[in-house]
Design a protein around this nucleic acid. Structure first.
Length: 305
DNA sequence: AACCGACTCAACCGCCTGCCT
DNA sequence: TAGGCAGGCGGTTGAGTCGGT
């Protein structure tokens, strides 16, 4: 019953790959492919590595057309906008950035991009985000107006629409109507000319929602630009739990608010964030105000310093 | 030159889902 | 149907590097 263990944990080598190992792995896969079995691959090519390690090495380092480092502003923006929307779903974010791996993006976010948003030079970048998100949505309360990163004139109308979708009492919406409303909510998260749009696939998210209790996406392979030569992004599919009436469809703003909370927490550790696009408020510890968030938000577009 | 702390990123770990037996 | 593995994923680690003192 079942399958054989993937590898002898005691017999496999760990740590950095040698150039010889890289050459063997790359040469074999380029000639023969993986054979749809990573676990047996090390034996086939005669290296003492775990199959998972081979897979990781190939996907993150050896496979063709990979880009390392040198993230562009556009890529920064895509990463940020997707992180805001779906959270730390790195593989999905990576699928929208040809040549980038989830590991690269994860590292980049954790070590640089997040700091970039918080740093002095990040101020200009963040302002660019504000400009591009100027029609974005967020919740607000009177006490936190100064930290409302994506405040805009459409907030109220979007919030109304959003409430209509997520409010269980409003479930009577026909699919067509829900789709229309959804598009209006998500529309602010698209921009020209690259057309990053988030289209809802209602069914696929239920299990993921329960599992992750966070935003979820299904496969975007059918419409993403992975592997194409076209640098422009095409429509992505954002999934929302539509059929599960036990769970509110909060993931869209969940991701957004987690982003806020995370950034804010890194500025001031003692703040408490209660999220809610549907009427709840974000509560900020008073200590937070000592950090002058308004200056953090309201910096010039380009910091020439 | 030596030391030390911060930073980077390749690699590993552990968990989950789907598939196979 | 149950048990167990492969593949995939996000989180974490730690060796190497860099910069400041």
């Amino acid at each position: 019953m079942g399958r054989a263990p993937c590898c002898d944990k005691m017999a496999v080598k760990k740590g950095p790959w040698s150039t010889e190992e890289d050459a063997v792995l790359k040469s074999y896969i380029e000639k023969h492919g993986t054979g749809n079995n990573w676990i047996s691959l090390p034996q086939r090519i005669g290296i003492k590595r775990c199959g998972k390690s081979c897979r990781l090495r190939w996907l993150n380092y050896l496979r063709p057309n990979l880009k390392h480092g040198g993230f562009t502003d556009e890529e920064d923006y895509i990463i940020c906008s997707l992180y805001i929307t779906i959270g730390s779903r790195w593989s999905i974010i990576a699928s929208q950035l040809p040549g980038r791996t989830d590991n690269d993006i994860k590292n980049y976010w954790n070590t640089r991009l997040k700091k970039k948003l918080l740093s002095k030079q990040g101020k200009a970048f963040h302002q660019q985000l504000n400009v591009k998100f100027e029609r974005g949505t967020t919740s607000s309360s009177s006490s936190q107006n100064q930290i409302q990163m994506f405040h805009d004139e459409n907030t109220k109308s979007n919030q109304t629409l959003y409430n209509q979708v997520v409010d269980p009492s409003m479930r009577a919406f026909a699919m067509e109507e829900q789709s229309m409303i959804k598009n209006q909510i998500l529309e602010p998260f698209s921009w020209e000319p690259n057309k990053v749009l988030f289209d809802v696939d209602y069914d696929a998210a239920a299990s993921s929602y329960h599992h992750h209790a966070s935003p979820s996406l299904n496969s975007m392979s059918s419409t993403s630009s992975i592997g194409t030569n076209n640098s422009s992004l095409q429509m992505s599919h954002y999934t929302v739990n539509h059929n599960d009436h036990d769970q509110p469809d909060m993931f869209f703003m969940d991701g957004f608010e987690n982003f806020q909370a995370e950034l804010f927490d890194e500025i001031a550790n003692n703040n408490t964030v209660e999220n809610g696009f549907d009427g709840t408020e974000i509560l900020i510890n008073n200590n937070y105000l000592d950090h002058d968030i308004s200056s953090f938000i309201d910096y010039p577009l380009y910091d020439n310093e």
